[in-house]
Simulated scan of single mutants.
Amino acid sequence: MRSRGVLAVLAAAVLFGTTGTAQELGPGGLDPLAVGAARVVLAGAVLFAVAQVSGAYRGTRFSWPVVVAGAVGVVAFQIGFFTGVRLSGVAVGTVVALGSGPVWAGIVEWLSTRRTPSARWLAATALAVAGVAVLTGGGTGVSWLGVAASLLAGLGYGVYTVAGSRLIAHGQRSHGAMGLMFGVGALVLVPMLIWRWPGGLDSTGGISIALYLALVPTVVAYLLFGAGLKVLPAATVATLTLAEPVVATALGVLVLGEEITAATVAGGLLVLGGLSLLALPARPEVALDRR
């Protein structure tokens, strides 16, 4: 069961990693905030509808404070990530947001459950975060406001990861938890979509990109993400999704023709090393302690 959870999260990370390439292949002039808002609004509607039709909410109870916290995390990630990338550049914005996500998730999980992350998680996260830092380079002309926005994105990611894990732990189906958080998050982002409209979304190319981002690296990816949360701790799930920048870099080389460097190879190996450490089967005594 644990190995299936690991595979589900890694599959989600692969889909997450297609986001940047899809945007690059889209038409010029797209407003990142408009695209981000449209992505969540569309995906939230679909995820909630899927959960509703499947009966995920029938006969189940859930904590609205946890749902709202998760939705706030979804919104914070979208606003923080796109703002951070715009102010600091793709490399710095991505490394701060994605690199800080597992750390924030571990902190939020510890604060909410008082469960201390394992030594394996600490070692795996350190390797993966170091790999993301090497992979994305660092860049010049860093905007501290942009870094702060990216840290906000990482915090948002950590919050909705832990919120989803708690909803599932208290009896909510995984797709139901995603539908609740993204559905409420969609309602919050509707005003932003109206404010930034059209932002390039009034063209065939813009609509196509928005639909792809909403349906593939959001709806499908977060259904897989939720499946992983059913059997893995939130902090572990957050670290596994650090496979995303490896996928994004590989697509940049293979699809966009970007140059492969020694840093690309070294960073990818560090991330894969950290993920491999997490993917190792748990020893019997560790599994016994968790009960």
Rank of each mutant, 00 (worst) to 15 (best):
R2V: 06
R2C: 02
G5V: 02
V9T: 06
A12F: 00
T18P: 11
T21I: 12
Q23K: 06
E24T: 10
G26C: 04
G26Y: 00
G28R: 14
G36I: 14
G36C: 14
A38P: 10
R39S: 11
V41Y: 03
L42A: 14
F48E: 13
V50Y: 08
A51N: 12
S54F: 01
A56W: 02
Y57L: 14
Y57A: 02
T60C: 00
W64E: 13
A69C: 10
A71E: 09
V72W: 05
G73S: 07
V74F: 08
F77R: 09
Q78K: 03
F82E: 07
F82N: 12
T83M: 03
V85D: 09
L87Y: 09
S88C: 08
G89F: 02
T94C: 06
V95F: 11
S100F: 01
P102V: 04
P102N: 04
W104P: 05
A105R: 12
A105E: 12
G106L: 12
G106W: 11
I107H: 03
R114E: 06
T116P: 06
T116W: 11
T116S: 12
A119P: 00
R120S: 09
W121T: 10
L122V: 14
A123K: 04
L127R: 05
L127I: 13
A128M: 05
G131F: 03
V132R: 10
V132H: 09
V134W: 02
L145G: 15
L145H: 05
V147T: 13
A149P: 08
G154L: 04
L155P: 11
Y160W: 13
T161D: 01
L167E: 08
I168K: 04
A169L: 05
S174G: 00
S174I: 00
G176S: 12
M178T: 11
F182Q: 15
F182R: 14
F182D: 14
L187Q: 15
V188W: 03
L189Q: 10
V190N: 13
P191Q: 08
W197R: 07
S203W: 02
S208A: 15
I209L: 15
L211G: 08
L213N: 14
V216W: 07
P217E: 11
V219Q: 00
V220Y: 01
L224R: 00
F225R: 01
G226Q: 10
A227R: 15
A227I: 07
G228M: 02
K230T: 15
L232F: 00
A234S: 15
T236V: 09
T236G: 08
L240I: 00
L242S: 14
P245V: 08
P245D: 13
V246E: 03
V247Y: 04
V247P: 05
L251G: 02
G252H: 10
V253Q: 10
V255S: 05
G257C: 06
E259Q: 11
I260K: 03
T264L: 03
L269T: 09
L270W: 05
V271I: 15
L272D: 13
G273L: 02
G273Q: 04
G273V: 03
L280Y: 04
A282V: 07
A287H: 09
L288F: 11
